[in-house]
Design a protein around this nucleic acid. Sequence first.
DNA 1: CTGTTAGCGCCTTCAT
DNA 2: ATGAAGGCGCTAACAG
Lengths: 343, 343
Amino acid sequence: MSHVVAPRPSVTLAEVAKEAGVSPSTVSRILNGTAQVKATKAAQVRAAIDRLGYKPNAFARGLVTGASGSVGVLTQDIASPFYGDALSGIESGLMGSGYSPMIISGHWRTDDEEHAVELLLSRRVEALIVLGGQLPEDELRGLAGGLPIAVLGRRVEFDSPTSTSLALDNRRAAYDLVTYLLDRGHRRIGHVAGPPDHVDARDRLAGYRQALEDRGLPFLPDLVAQGDFHEPSGLIGTQQLVARHPDMTAIFSANDQMAYGARLALYRMGLRVPEDMSLVGFDDLPGSAYTTPPLTSVRQPMAEMGHWLARFVVAQLTGQTVEPFQPQLKLHLRESVAPRRFP
Amino acid sequence: MSHVVAPRPSVTLAEVAKEAGVSPSTVSRILNGTAQVKATKAAQVRAAIDRLGYKPNAFARGLVTGASGSVGVLTQDIASPFYGDALSGIESGLMGSGYSPMIISGHWRTDDEEHAVELLLSRRVEALIVLGGQLPEDELRGLAGGLPIAVLGRRVEFDSPTSTSLALDNRRAAYDLVTYLLDRGHRRIGHVAGPPDHVDARDRLAGYRQALEDRGLPFLPDLVAQGDFHEPSGLIGTQQLVARHPDMTAIFSANDQMAYGARLALYRMGLRVPEDMSLVGFDDLPGSAYTTPPLTSVRQPMAEMGHWLARFVVAQLTGQTVEPFQPQLKLHLRESVAPRRFP
DNA sequence: CTGTTAGCGCCTTCAT
DNA sequence: ATGAAGGCGCTAACAG
């Protein structure tokens, strides 16, 4: 038995032309709307197209036009809930533009990111959207070589107006969150920090520290547990914190995932949230509205940001303009915080 | 002010050849390892390549070879935690194969899926991996026209051995989960069902029903609340169920997301899990190990499945074989279930 | 309005 | 082992 792989019929534009009794250019013109064509011919051609099941060859087209119709998206983890919404936003921002995304993961590793960008470029993407990551900005610029670039998650200075970045004020958001805790009477506030090589983590830590100091409270390194942005580290960090500081009444976790770990640690220790311990996270992941109790967190409008970035690069590509966009952080006050009880 | 878009230098193979003082064919042979080339020339060429910063044009290459080096992935929602792991698995399964994924979302809408597949094909993907979705299989086959196809999430019969599918025994898993509850003494078991037009949802419901009936318990339509696989519907469904059946002691939610909603509903009603109400979910999402209490659920090895599917299509493309793979559902017994208390 | 003519950058016979 | 030549499918001038 021979498994004949079905031969790719691969109808060409020339065949369509022959079938319709016109020249290839005419078919091309109809396909691209490049010029007026008599209605009758257009009809013949369309008929031929779907009689033959013709699909344009994107390679051939790309080869001559130099345009691929795709924009490269460098994310860090295709399954990350943190970037997921941004990807959705990019999808929707690209919708109807004629461009489609080409998504590759960099796994927060500089060399992976580099390879990803190179792959994207070899696929001739026309613009780049970068979600987070560590790739130094000058290297990024160098690699991209003049392509429009839109970076999410860090401030990057581009000399060219065809590129932009959308950064969050992590420090400010952390500051607000901790201040909120302070306003509720908490004084011993622990922090489960993110990885120190991560700029977001550092900024959130800085915001925590400053909020404390602005109220005249000392910053105690002991009240900071080292985490890595994943759940287990939140659990462990919380155990350490509680052990070290039995008088602690609130915990600020540098992201929601670690807050979930913290929540579980507290549950295991028999500490109630928020009665015995207040807890706040950061990122407001989709699940955070459904933890028990729902988690107070701060939301970055990831989907909107992704959407805007996509529209930005499309605008650059098509010579249009987009209105500027200032992402608003939004504090979601839910039920994981209670006023400090004075025993 | 004129925004000069930086001119794409775009070094060509011909230029490299000139620079190195050899013919284009030689450069091509070195690039692809198509034939032996004298070491000295090879060195010259390589030097020229990175002196000029040459990057092969994938379009030109694709045009002549007909190979794009990419496999199309049709997912449903790029931000879905459910398919996220499968996407990660696909990424890892493709790694090192020379192929890269091209991911498009179908949003569970047949026409979107169709467009997505067409886009993928126009980009000349060499194989298709389909994650769930509704696209009728014959249409899929028709569209793909002989390309290797790998489908996740439903059983599809392909006459060609270059295609395959990996389905889960949803019914069996649901049966096991409910039986587990029955074994713990529960008799009044509610079910928050998924959307009726979703085959997974129907199968899970069928498993629930059969588990009951096999133990001689009646199937009560009243004990089934209609959900849509998202958190809010789990919350509402649970409220209805509890209101209708105060004697209910356990709930089987058709997926984890709705179980999160159910958990919150119970929390709001002051019902403890698992003391007052046992709760089981389905899918074992990454967050389910960190709910309070950790949720008992059943895990489909999404990442492994994605990995295998990717390796499968690569094998088809390269004429190799892969060992067959039988995904194993794994029950994760955590802390959201307690034996029924007999008051 | 429409057909003809050149390539786009690369790979692949075919010679040498 | 290497070069020359042709063509993959399409679009973009250039003529009509």
